[in-house]
Amino acid sequence: MFDHFGLFVSTVADGLLLTIEATVGGILLATVLSFLAGLAMLSRFAVLRAITRVYVEVWRGTSEVVQLFWIYFALPVLTGFQILPLWSGIVVLGLNFGAYGAEIVRGAVQAVPREQREGCVALNFTPAQRMRRVILPQAFVDMVPPFTNLFIQLLKGTALLTFITVPEMTYQASQVLVTRYTGQAALIWTIVLVFYLVLSILITSGMKVLERRAAVRVGRAPRRAALSGAGT
């Protein structure tokens, strides 16, 4: 059973870099969209709130696979512009998980005690100063645990890129190895599981460090319980 173990590990590892690239790219895009959309949903402008709500509901309420096919296959037909497979995956992951992250941001900002907002008003802070100097630093501590869950889900979502032939880890296992070594599928997929587990642990560890630093910055211990709305 273990005769080809080294070959299996090296073949799956050939897709590791693309998995990491898709994950990092998706996380960066999702984080930006989460804050933009989350804060937009709290805007005093009804039109902005409505537009943002449409984005969130559309991307949360439709299939990731269909979204991926639409971006990669349908969009080029409409625009005449073909997006590279990896970039298509990053765009879909960012837009999809950004919609979930928007609810995390919105909920965390709204959870900041009212007294903090009133104190900002008493100090004559502008709305931008209130958000930047008082509200967001406190809310950020509460955002980190659910964002950890979200980023791990995003990592696992990179396996969908197999459908558009991005040779990430799942593609390497399913299209390169399992088709040739069918009788050793259990070992092959166990190796893939271990790779994903290690990456998940790295994300969790990094986010824990970030949470501790954010908590120290505002003078309190990090919360253990994650806010709802992580989309897990």
Rank of each mutant, 00 (worst) to 15 (best):
V109S: 00
A128H: 11
Q153G: 13
I20V: 13
G38Y: 05
V178T: 15
M169A: 04
I83Q: 02
A215M: 04
L93I: 00
F151C: 05
L227S: 01
N124A: 15
I20Y: 06
V121L: 14
P146K: 00
K156R: 09
T52R: 11
V9D: 04
F125Y: 15
R180D: 03
R114W: 09
T232Y: 07
R132T: 12
F45Q: 14
D142W: 09
V47C: 13
R133T: 15
V209F: 10
Q116C: 02
W59T: 15
Q116L: 10
L48N: 11
E118T: 02
G107S: 01
M131C: 09
G183E: 12
V105Y: 01
I201C: 04
R106N: 00
S228E: 10
V141T: 05
E21V: 12
L29Y: 00
E118Q: 08
G229Q: 01
R220H: 08
S200R: 06
A111Y: 03
E57S: 12
D3P: 10
V105D: 02
N149R: 04
T170E: 04
R224D: 07
V56P: 07
N149H: 03
A40K: 07
T179G: 15
L193G: 13
I90E: 01
K156D: 05
I203S: 01
T158V: 05
V144T: 09
A221L: 13
T126D: 12
M143F: 00
G61L: 05
A185F: 06
A50Q: 14
L36V: 12
T158S: 07
P113H: 11
L36S: 04
F125P: 10
I152W: 00
T23H: 02
V134C: 08
A185G: 06
W59I: 14
T19A: 00
Y171N: 10
L199G: 08
A139H: 11
T23G: 02
S174L: 10
A30W: 01
P85S: 04
V24F: 04
V9M: 08
G61R: 08
I188P: 04
L17Y: 11
M131R: 06
T126K: 13
R130T: 15
W87E: 04
G26E: 02
P85V: 05
A30S: 05
N124D: 13
V9C: 05
Y171Q: 06
K156Y: 13
I27N: 02
A186E: 14
R223L: 07
A159N: 05
S34F: 02
R132C: 08
G25M: 02
V9S: 09
G157L: 03
F45K: 13
G61C: 03
F195A: 03
F147W: 08
